[in-house]
Design a binder for these strands. Structure first.
Length: 886
RNA sequence: GGGCGGUUAGCUCAGCGGUAGAGCAUCGGUCUUACAAACCGGGGGUCACUGGUUCGAGCCCAGUACCGCCCACCA
């Protein structure tokens, strides 16, 4: 057989096996068996892989690989999102460097540039996902700007319009003066910022005096059309209906009664600016107030603000207004104040609420069934707590602003006729037809990016066509996504899926952990706090990265992930070391299968040996735990369980216990059987590990004798009740405890590893005796012992180190080399530990309430343990006595 | 202002009713021919704080403190 390198070298394996899998078509659905499907959250077309992506796609790939091995007809559809505003910003940034603006370039040229940009830099992330090992069906890759997808978007728009679920209206919306577009409520971020609260005097017209109003934005007063106070507010009862003179402007405005003014705030009077505040807008509608727009789309004052202010930036205008009010002694006071400031989630610019005509989706009706499917448990959130997050939002939902004053995106499928009619159509041709000869122009705006994302799970499967994929793979099985897009995306897929397909788009919504940096902050590439996953893959391998992430993927718990100490990633190193451990254990097995590996049958040959019975039982338990954990999305438990089984049980004990047989030069039925068994346990472990570490496991599997083409399409191990073996597990525990105790004595008594010792054991327990008898060779090997003797009780002998474990007395003759002082210390320590435990148990057993109320098996267990301890303590005291007093 | 998480060994985190676990780090010992990216052994924790429930509480309940996240039209 060929030489196997001493360490696992990821790079070659990764390339080799990825193209192998791909060329064999394993990433495609097999077309039979129950369906299991995932439409992956489409990354932004301009994005590149970051650790958060690495985590979510590792999870999804692990799930899909596991289900594939279980025999499901698995489909994982990848794709990209055109990411309207984000992508447009990127291109605009590029233009800025050339000293250009998009307006100068013009719409058509700008879109050409954007497509160019997308074609050059776009989709990088998809190829990066291939390096991660993702087994997605690349032939089905979708982009939200593909013609088919555009058709779906238009179909959706038209149908909602026809059902009166889309409307056009003037409303105060969130306007970003930098991006020059409306954005939806959830694209606004709030941040508390220190600012000022200004109290301004509004003089009364027909009598002396004034009403004082408070505002954080004095410049908007230029657009005031009323002042409001609460109808219950005694201070203003007399004044309702009175006319006020708006300072600086001179406009006469009424004092109105409206209960949105809260008496406890400031003076209880609030200025009303219907064009620049949502509340004021709504109050304005209630009271029929004029709407005067004083701030324009770029954040500058309009002509309507008056000649003294027109053209000024909103902040400059604020300063001038304050100055002017002060000059006229109309400023009552200015106090420091913290205001929750609305910011554009994309660029951080302060949002300007602006009265504007936009397109909206009416939400109440759409939301209702999407609330029900979650309440009724048809769609389930994991972890469960996010269900509440989702429901709270959905139950208080407001209409969705879907138009964006951008160029990159799905142009709104609405055409306007010369006489002001709106024609909504699936295409320009259809619109022309409907226009009946009237000239038409298409609405300038595009749709919110999330409008198209909302259709993802079914649009990628062919909707609105009645495609086979749709028939077979919808609804999908699970959506794995980040918690910050529960509102933006998850909710919208739910209501659109239910609306168009009459069925929810996925059964499970698994909210994965957020990856944080060392400071506990969300990892962000733009802030320079990110780690490049490709760098990590280059250094440690894709499997190591995957495992490092998955072993931390507790449900919903954030993951802190960072480079520490000279660019070393300790967390990935740990996983890489595990990969290497798997590699070397496999190397050991392979090296012992003989010249012709294929001559060995990988199978479980029944055996009475304790170690065999034990490892089979442990393997069975492991299969059960891992499968169950996968079913419940507890990926960390999957990883931890396998780590423990493979390293501690298989490597540290089973391989060591099997070594003499397996690596014996003889070729007998017995040694062949032992080799088959060890290969079997290894092979089964590889199957279990494959979803987490696909490359490494395939690399090894291919070197093992196997009947299949690839581990990727091998079957998932099943549990077998007949393999449960409590007795073997208990006996093995005793054996391990015994060996560990001897090693402990050796180490504490400074016995060199090279020197062989003898061992005297004593027990009256017949079962323990035969356990020792049958396994004496293994004890000798693992504890580095020359001779073992067993008797009923130990004779008192000088110069021995003594202890007791699991009821077995242990004595190691030290041939005069014993350091009495040291031995006394060691035994005292052991004695103290046991006495302490016994005391605790005695106290409990002394407590009548415990005896009465605790379950019988708990009491029984405590009693048994206590008695064992007492016996052991007695023996240890005798030992200590024989060592002489202090 | 409301809601949700977190607080466990020096670090990163599991555990979530029966008197504490892992990896790393640390200390001591090993080239024991699969693996020094390893092996063997050790030390290290009043499980944030205060009350309560319970025979028994990191684990359940109430409250406090600090950290983080989400939501929010109080000018």
């Amino acid at each position: 057989m060929t030489e196997i390198p001493k360490a696992y070298e990821p790079r070659d394996s990764e390339q080799k096996w990825y193209s192998f899998w791909n060329s064999r078509g394993y990433f495609k659905p097999r077309g039979e068996g129950p369906a299991y499907s995932i439409t992956i959250p489409p990354p932004n077309v301009t994005g590149s892989l970051h650790i958060g992506h690495a985590l979510t796609y590792s999870i999804q790939d692990a799930l899909i690989r596991w289900k594939r091995m279980q025999g499901f007809d698995t489909l994982c559809v990848p794709g990209m999102d055109h990411a309207g505003i984000a992508t447009q910003n990127m291109v605009e940034k590029q233009l800025r460097k050339e000293g250009l603006t998009r307006q100068e370039l013009g719409r058509e040229k700008f879109l050409e540039r954007t497509w160019e940009y997308v074609n050059t830099f776009g989709g990088v992330i998809l190829s990066q996902l291939q390096r991660l090992g993702c087994s997605f069906d690349w032939d089905r890759t979708r982009f939200t700007m593909d013609q088919e997808y555009v058709d779906a978007v238009y179909e959706c728009f038209v149908r909602w319009w026809e059902q009166d679920l889309i409307y056009r209206g003037a409303r105060v919306i969130n306007w970003c003066p930098r991006c020059l577009t409306a954005i939806s409520d959830i694209e606004v971020e709030h941040e508390d910022r220190p600012a000022k609260l200004y109290q301004i005097r509004y003089p009364l017209k027909d009598r002396p005096g004034f009403v004082v109003v408070a505002t954080t934005r004095p410049e908007t007063m230029l657009g005031d059309t009323a002042v409001a106070a609460n109808p219950e507010d005694e201070r203003y009862k007399e004044l309702f209906g009175a006319t006020l003179v708006l300072p600086l402007v001179g406009r006469e405005i009424p004092l109105i009664a409206d209960d949105y003014a809260k008496p406890e705030f400031g003076t209880g009077a609030v200025k009303v600016t219907p064009s620049h505040d949502l509340n004021d807008f709504e109050a304005g509608l209630r009271h029929n107030l004029p709407q005067i727009t004083v701030i324009d789309e770029s954040g500058r004052m309009t002509e309507e603000a008056g000649p003294r202010y027109a053209g000024l930036d909103r902040y400059a205008a604020r300063a001038r207004v304050v100055e002017d009010l002060e000059a006229q002694e109309l400023l009552e006071k200015i106090e420091d104040y913290t205001v929750p400031t609305a910011l554009c989630a994309r660029c951080g610019t302060v949002i300007e609420p602006l009265l504007s005509e936009q397109w909206f989706v009416r939400m109440k009706e759409l939301a209702r069934p999407a609330i029900d499917v979650v309440k009724e448990g048809q769609v389930r959130f994991i972890p469960e707590r996010f269900e509440k997050t989702y429901l709270d939002w959905m139950e208080n939902i407001r209409d969705w602003t879907i138009s964006r004053q951008l160029w990159w995106g799905h142009r709104i499928p609405v055409w306007i006729t010369g006489d002001g009619d709106y024609i909504v159509a699936r295409s320009e041709a259809e619109a022309l037809e409907k226009a009946n000869g009237r000239p038409i122009t298409q609405d300038e705006d595009v749709l919110d990016t999330w409008f198209s994302s909302a259709l993802w799970p079914f649009a990628v499967l062919g909707w609105p066509r009645q495609s086979e994929d749709l028939e077979r793979y919808y609804p999908t099985s699970v959506l794995t996504t980040a918690r910050d897009i529960i509102y933006l995306w998850v909710s919208r897929m739910l209501f659109s899926g239910i609306y168009f397909l009459h069925e929810f788009p996925f059964h499970d919504v698994y909210i994965y952990a957020t990856v944080l940096n060392e400071a506990g902050k969300r990892m962000s590439k733009s802030l320079g706090t990110g780690i490049d996953p490709l760098e990590v893959i280059d250094m440690y391998g894709a499997d190591a990265l995957r495992f490092a992430l998955l072993v931390r993927a507790a449900r919903g718990q954030d993951i802190r992930f960072s480079y520490v100490e000279n660019n070393r990633q300790k967390q990935v190193e740990e996983a890489r070391n595990f990969a290497n451990k798997i590699w070397n254990a496999s190397r050991f097995v392979l090296m012992n299968l003989g010249e012709d590996v294929s001559k060995t049958e990988v199978k479980w040959v029944p055996s009475d040996r304790l170690a065999d019975r034990w490892i089979l039982a442990e393997l069975n338990v492991t299969i059960d735990q891992v499968t169950r954990a996968l079913e419940e999305y507890r990926l960390n438990e999957v990883a931890q369980t396998l780590y423990h089984f493979f390293w501690d049980d298989f490597c540290d004990w089973y391989i060591e216990l099997s070594k003499s047989l397996v690596s014996s030069p003889e070729d007998t039925e017995e040694t062949r059987a032992a080799r088959s068994r060890i290969a079997y346990v290894l092979e089964t472990s590889l199957r279990l590990l494959h979803p987490l570490m696909p490359y490494l496991t395939e690399e090894i599997w291919q070197r093992l004798p196997h009947g299949g083409e690839s581990l990727m399409i091998a079957s998932w191990p099943a549990t077998d009740e007949a393999r449960d073996d409590e007795e073997a597990r208990e006996q093995m525990q005793t054996l391990i405890a015994l060996i560990t105790k001897v090693r402990n004595i050796r180490s504490e008594m400074n016995i060199p590893a090279s020197s062989r010792i003898n061992l005297h054991l004593a027990t009256t327990d017949q079962a323990a005796r035969s356990l020792i008898d049958e396994n004496s060779d293994r004890i000798k090997r693992l504890a580095r012992v020359e001779e073992i003797s067993i008797s009923d009780r130990l004779q008192t002998r000088k110069g021995e180190a003594r202890d007791i474990v699991a009821g077995i007395e242990v004595a190691v003759p030290l041939e005069g080399l014993i350091d009495i002082k040291k031995e006394r210390e060691r035994v005292s320590k052991e004695l103290a530990r046991k006495e302490n435990e016994a005391r605790g148990l005695a106290a409990r057993l002394d407590n009548d309430s415990f005896l009465e109320r605790a379950p019988q098996d708990v009491v029984q267990q405590a009693r048994q343990r206590h008695d064992e301890l007492i016996a052991e303590i007695e023996k240890l005291r005798a030992t200590l006595g024989s060592l002489g007093a202090e």
